[in-house]
């Protein structure tokens, strides 16, 4: 509960940015791997998911 510029995020501004950046990086990595990576094994495993989420596929 250090410095907080919003009522409901209880992080200091710099910690908030660090947490957000880490979340964005890991999240983008996971979504890329499941949805976009050009690997036959990843594609076949995630095939139905890729179609369902409307990722460009095939």
């Amino acid at each position: 509960m250090a410095v907080s510029n919003t009522s409901s995020i209880s992080l200091s501004a710099s910690d908030r940015l660090i947490a957000g950046a880490i979340a964005l990086l890991i999240g983008a990595f996971l979504v890329f791997g499941a949805g976009l990576a050009n690997s036959a094994t990843l594609h076949d495993t995630a095939h139905d998911t890729r179609h369902s989420y409307g990722f460009p596929c095939h």
Partner: peptide, 9 residues
């Protein structure tokens, strides 16, 4: 994580 990241940043 992406949604949380946007919210935090």
């Amino acid at each position: 994580l992406l949604l949380a990241g946007v919210s935090l940043v």
